[in-house]
């Protein structure tokens, strides 16, 4: 049920960003990705989530075990908090949204349209979606953006609880989540070398 990535090379917009990257994630583990802006963390996570194919290398994981949460929360502004979560629950063929509502303290906002939420509340709702999917491997891209200190703690508690239940998480973030046994992977050293085409024409191929 783990995730195993070996010798991965990925590209964004036709330009290689990371190459020769290896990582593995077992049940109960969390791995935090670090690296400067633009190094390719988002591209890496999108590749692992299956949204784009890698240039080289293999990703060994069952796509049915992963859930991806990107920069956008995928919320519909005219649907209420409850309707948004119920929709994702039925897409992932689960039904329990109460645990997710409780974990991110959304109970008071249940009937509020998502469009009327603040940025932090929207993000909490977006993260609550992870819980309703019931999938073990969380692929998270900057999950704490626009969260306040309390909400970050709420999120860290949720991740810890998820790991305790045998789940795992791959998180790209710049802040310290306070997950004591999370591995840290700096993707900086895997930055792809600039391409030096041998001749002029090759640059256009």
């Amino acid at each position: 049920m783990g995730l195993n990535v070996s010798n991965l090379t990925i590209a964004r917009g036709g330009i290689k960003v990371l190459e020769g990257l290896n990582l593995s994630l077992e049940a109960g583990q969390a791995l935090v990705l670090r690296g400067p802006n633009g190094v390719g963390k988002t591209t890496l996570l999108r590749t692992i989530a299956g949204l784009q194919p890698p240039i080289e290398g293999t990703i060994k994981a069952d796509p049915e075990t992963m859930v991806y949460a990107g920069h956008a929360d995928g919320l519909k502004p005219t649907l209420t908090v409850e309707e948004n979560l119920t929709f994702w629950a039925s897409v992932f063929a689960t039904s329990d949204i109460d645990a997710a509502i409780d974990a991110f303290h959304l109970d008071a906002l249940r009937t509020r349209p998502a469009g009327a939420l603040s940025a932090g509340q929207k993000r909490r709702l977006g993260l609550a979606r992870l819980l309703v999917t019931g999938r073990p491997i969380w692929i998270l891209d900057e999950p704490t953006v626009s969260l306040d200190v309390d909400a970050v703690r709420m999120f860290a508690d949720t991740v810890r609880h998820h790991l305790g239940q045998g789940g795992s998480a791959l998180i790209a973030t710049h802040i310290d989540l306070g997950l004591p046994d999370a591995g840290i992977l700096d993707v900086g050293p895997y930055r792809a070398r600039a391409m030096n085409p041998d001749d002029f024409d090759e640059a256009f191929l």
Partner: peptide, 14 residues
């Protein structure tokens, strides 16, 4: 596409 639902749907079981 704009609100990211399409990415999430693409990675969903559908």
């Amino acid at each position: 596409w704009e609100d990211g639902s399409l990415d999430l749907l693409a990675t969903s079981p559908l």
